[in-house]
Design a protein around this nucleic acid. Structure first.
Length: 817
DNA sequence: ACTCCGTCAGAG
DNA sequence: TCTGACGGAGTC
């Protein structure tokens, strides 16, 4: 058998293209310069654009309906085939269960920027003389102009503009005709390994160097003393030479200039090393169960706050690394847990790598490549790290497994990292530990009903430290007895003590910002976000700062107006109380108390979180004032007092999960007290002291709470018993959303209605967010029905969705708002 | 996702 | 008869 060099029959490859709504396999030719293995990620031309693609298999013969002239060439290989065993199947399972395409799943699994595609964008032409008030402009054109002008570059993706502006097509055409705006196709931008120029001495350098000048010889000697290798830029500095000199030397064959790949991995200095600590009996028992488990075992580690779960994790990982495997640790938000990361790094040194969205694209890409190496390592990451491509996975840990940030709301796939972790554990036969002081009801139920499940309990704190007693203060009574302050007398006294006893405290507030809304005392007008159906929150950062009004949904902000926009009255009043308001009251009533504010406003910048905690730990403040963030993995042994400002906002959310979430949050906050040598105490202020959640916190009895809550869920067929699927429908066009929602509900009526109950369609609780109207339909699956038994929802529904309306299918939604 | 190409309605 | 608007199909 001979084949001519020009015609290599093995060079066709079938691929899956990364285009939503394009199903099916496409065939490309592989240029001789490339080698492509199944599983590789490619960039291919598709219609007029460049898109990402996954190589599936080589074929020897073209399908009969294809002529060679139709076939295009693979443009480039983005990554070689990498999939560890079972990984493909994992991605497929995610795609199937959450009703998304494989490429969509690949998008979250791969570091950002890898699956590139060309993108239609529009931008203002810098030379154009734009008159936005021009009378002949349509509303759509005006809106597009406003949008573009609101940004410095005046450049947005067309998709974004379409989502923001109704009839954007029409508006764009007008603007293009006037030559104010242009539309262009931006090529895909992909992340690549970073190269850096290095210089390396050759063997020639040892020869006589007669033809060289004294300076050139000197340069070579310096390089030799450096070990014969250096980075070009470093060397230019230390040697005070120029690149022309080096090029000349390279020309003469004394050294080589070559680009080398460098890894952009966060290289913060390692903390002082940390030795394994001695274990409590509970910890030792838990560890021995974990050590003996192999294959696909799932373990619930229910350890109360302060029971030392982290130490168990650390010691469980040691033998894994020892036998050459890797461990994967998932945490809710990495920025919030610098202490945990530090502790891992102190124990395992440079074997720890951190993977999360705050890394730059380059850093993420390099960390990801590092994982592929297969060297034993510990990866700590957030939700998406569940897809870390570790080839030899020996153990997975989800810390604070009840945390809702493990669930992705949007974009698709709306996956839950815990669910994916369970599949991954099955597929690669490795144990999975779910750790929490307040396990989710899902996990709780699993642990009780699934046989292979180990439920480990660590009901005591380390060194037998007592739980902080919880004092519940009835704020109604405070008011009746004439105390109109936001601090009860009990809390007031405790805060006073704090200063005299030189101890530290934490004050938990449910809301950030200053107040929940601003309204006019003359006419009752409430200031609202122009883009969303919510009121604006009042923000006042410091004394001299301009007061701001901000929307917590879309981040819109405006200056606080001096007068009511409706009736011009100057009497605007703030209602409710957030962190800023509490800070102000603290400053007034406790002038000597040094307070630090700790919420997403003050921890926005990189490292701000750690900096605040360090300052607090160093005793720079007496009181840490903050929101939900305080509940996540903060271990401050010197805190003796935890104050909880009125907790009622947390209790009365209209959501079937409100109680679970409130109990978890409050127990976690309360658990911050008394973790050190000094005993702690908790003061909980509320208007409804008889609420079962308050009782739960008062008695530190999460167990009883779960039993009661599970019973209720079962009665109402809510998760974890009955399952839910939420369809979110949104569009900038109010009517289109409504009609589409009604149409979809109708379509859903027809097939197998005994499988589910349809709730809705109904407008979402906050109907408009970021200028888009939102409706939703909730499917409540009949007991025992799994999503796989349902009709193919996307196929059923997408055809009834006009292009202006977007539909997200959220399986097992956590956020029903 | 984007483009091309069909049909169709309304102005010249 | 020509123009732009809209919908559907195809993309290797």
């Amino acid at each position: 058998m001979h084949s001519t060099p020009t015609e290599n029959s093995e060079t066709w490859i079938e691929v899956l293209v990364d285009c939503p709504s394009v199903e099916g396999v496409f065939t490309y030719r592989v240029p001789a310069s490339l080698s492509v293995q199944p599983g590789a990620i490619l960039s291919v031309p598709f219609a007029s654009q460049q898109v990402g693609a996954i190589a599936l298999r080589h074929i020897k013969q073209l399908p009969p309906d294809l002529s060679p002239s139709q076939i295009k060439l693979v443009e480039s290989v983005i990554t070689e085939a990498f999939f560890p065993s079972g990984y493909w199947e994992l991605l497929n399972r995610v795609a199937q269960y959450y009703y998304t395409s494989l490429t969509q799943v690949l998008r979250v699994a791969l570091p950002p920027g890898l699956l590139g595609r060309s993108q239609r964008r529009i931008r203002l032409l810098p030379t154009a003389e734009i008159d936005p008030t021009c009378a002949s402009l349509s509303a759509a054109a005006t809106e597009i102009l406003q949008l573009l002008q609101s940004q410095k570059q005046g450049d947005y993706s067309w998709q974004h503009v379409q989502r923001q502006v109704r009839f954007a097509h029409r508006g764009l055409r007008e603007l293009v005709q006037r030559s104010w705006v242009e539309s262009y196709l931006a090529p895909p931008t992909t992340v690549r390994p970073k190269q850096r120029q290095a210089i390396v001495l050759t063997a020639n350098a040892n020869l006589e160097r007669l033809e060289l000048t004294a300076r050139q010889r000197e340069v070579l000697d310096v390089l030799k003393r450096h070990g014969g290798e250096a980075w070009l830029s470093d060397f230019l500095q230390t040697c005070r030479t120029t690149s022309t000199t080096l090029k000349a030397l390279a020309q003469l064959g004394y050294l080589i200039l070559e680009p080398r790949e460098i890894l952009r991995i966060e290289q913060s200095p390692l903390p002082a090393t940390d030795q394994p600590r001695s274990l409590t009996p509970d910890q030792a028992a838990a560890l021995s169960v974990i050590a003996q488990s192999s294959g696909n075992t799932q373990i619930l580690l229910h350890g109360v706050t302060g029971s030392g779960k982290t130490e168990v994790y650390l010691q469980a990982i040691v033998p894994i690394l020892h036998r050459g495997d890797s461990a994967l640790v998932l945490v809710p938000e990495i920025g919030l847990t610098p202490q945990l990361t530090d502790r891992f790094r102190a124990r395992f040194g440079s074997q720890v790598c951190v993977y999360h969205s705050a890394l730059s694209d380059g850093e993420r890409y390099d960390t990801w490549r590092q994982m592929l190496s297969g060297e034993p390592q510990v990866v700590i990451g957030t939700r998406s790290a569940i897809f870390a491509p570790l080839p030899k996975l020996g153990l997975m840990i989800l810390d604070e497994e009840h945390d809702t940030s493990f669930k992705q709301d949007s974009p698709a796939p709306c996956y839950h990292a815990r669910t994916v972790a369970q599949w991954r554990a099955e597929l690669c036969g490795c144990p999975l530990i779910l750790g929490s002081a307040t396990p989710s009801l899902e996990t709780w139920l699993n642990a009780q009903t699934v046989k292979e499940y180990h439920a480990l309990s660590m009901p005591k704190r380390v060194q037998e430290r007592p739980f902080p007693p919880v004092t519940v203060v009835d704020m109604r009574r405070e008011l009746n007895e004439g105390n109109r302050s936001i601090f009860s007398r009990t809390l007031h006294a405790a805060l006073d003590d704090l200063h005299t006893t030189r101890q530290q405290g934490i004050l938990f507030i449910h809301r950030r910002g200053h107040s929940t809304f601003v309204s006019c005392r003359s006419c009752g007008y409430v200031l609202e976000c122009p883009n969303c159906d919510v009121s604006l929150a009042y923000h006042h950062t410091h004394e001299q700062a301009q007061p701001l009004l901000r929307c917590h949904y879309c981040n819109f902000s405006q200056l606080h107006p001096p007068r009511c926009p409706s009736c011009q009255s100057p009497y605007l009043k703030y209602f409710g109380s957030g962190t800023q308001r509490v800070m102000q009251d603290l400053a007034q009533q406790f002038p000597d108390l040094r307070c630090l504010r700790f919420d997403s406003d003050t921890t926005r910048t990189k490292g701000a979180h750690r900096a605040l905690l360090t300052r607090f730990a160093a005793g720079e403040a007496d009181l840490l004032v903050g929101t939900q963030m305080l509940t996540k993995g903060i271990d401050l042994p010197q805190v003796t007092l935890v104050g909880i400002m009125t907790a009622d906002g947390l209790l009365h959310l209209s959501d079937y999960r409100a109680s679970e979430r409130a109990a978890q949050t409050l127990i976690q906050v309360a658990g911050r007290a008394g973790r050190g040598a000094e005993p702690g105490r908790v003061i909980l202020q509320t208007y409804t002291p008889e609420h079962p959640v308050i009782e739960t916190v008062r008695h530190h009895d999460y167990l009883a709470f779960t039993q009661q809550e599970l019973q209720q869920r079962q009665d109402l067929n809510y998760p974890p018993y009955g399952r839910l699927i939420l369809l979110r429908i949104s569009s900038p066009d109010l009517n289109a959303v409504k009609t589409t929602a009604e149409r979809l509900a109708q379509v859903l009526q027809t097939p197998s209605t005994d499988r589910y109950q349809i709730l809705g369609p109904a407008p979402a609780q906050v109907m408009r967010v970021a200028r888009r109207y939102r409706w939703q339909i909730l499917l409540k699956l009949t007991l025992g029905v799994t999503p796989s038994q349902l009709p193919d929802l996307p196929q059923l529904l997408r055809s009834h969705c006009p292009s202006s309306v977007s539909l997200t299918i959220d399986v097992d939604p956590l956020n029903l708002l």
